[in-house]
Amino acid sequence: MIPNVGTFFDHLIEAHAVLWNEFLPAWVAVFLAATVLPPLGLHASFRRQTLTTIALPQWAFAGMAIALALPIADARGEPHPTALLIGVLVGTAAGLLVTSRFRRESATLGVAACFIASLAVTEVARALSPFGETRLEPLLHGEVLGLTSAKLPLLAFLVVPVLVTFAERRTWLFTAAYPDSARAAGVSIERAALGFAGALGFAVMFATQALGPLITSGLLLLPAAFARHRGNVSGSAETEARVSGWLAAWWGPVAAVMLDIPVGPGVVAASVVVGAVIRTVRVRNVR
């Protein structure tokens, strides 16, 4: 059976029109997240701090996002079970920070653990919370098309400080690759690590709250994983991660509209396809 190419392109154009006319704020929000998350994920892998700097903000800020989405206390002022959940999350994150501070784990293992852990934690939160199905489930599944234009200025405002921190990318690289030389040159390793963790945590926080953990994790980890290719130097890997993120932000929502699925899986699938295509093209060019 020969697929009808004309019909496919009609659907493609229609999906773009639907997104542009009806869901532009959500589309722009995904682009904003894709501007900062992929390069931050890449630098996190350079710093071999995946477990601490990705898992910690994800776990801690997933808890904060839940705290913002649900009431902490009920009408009588009794503590809400969510407060306990948040305590567990923050405690886990703190324990993670202490135990893994001086441990360097495999980046691949760390990324996989972070991805699974963040999804598992948020799914547990959804299951335990009485508001899970009504308020959290759409966020968890990345159903973000209902995002209104009223939230966009705030999102854009939140992206700016993260972008500003990229002025420090040279310091991030210097302290990650040559910590002793950097210290001898008068660079504070601790300040660089703190600045990077702050930028990452801030970006994950607003992306999780606006777009949910699925899109956040997908944009943070997948473009970075593909960009960290054998032949890439850090500058070109960063560019590749950014371009991959933008392409995923473009095609993910389009695929979601065309296939009638939530945007979250669409962005994750687009990240994988874009990363695989770019990697294949690069390998062919190199050879």
């Binding site: 990650a176 690759a177 130097v233």
Partner: peptide, 10 residues
């Protein structure tokens, strides 16, 4: 090389 191997620097 300190931690040079970890970061793909040109």
């Amino acid at each position: 090389p300190e931690d040079e191997e970890q970061v793909p620097l040109g």
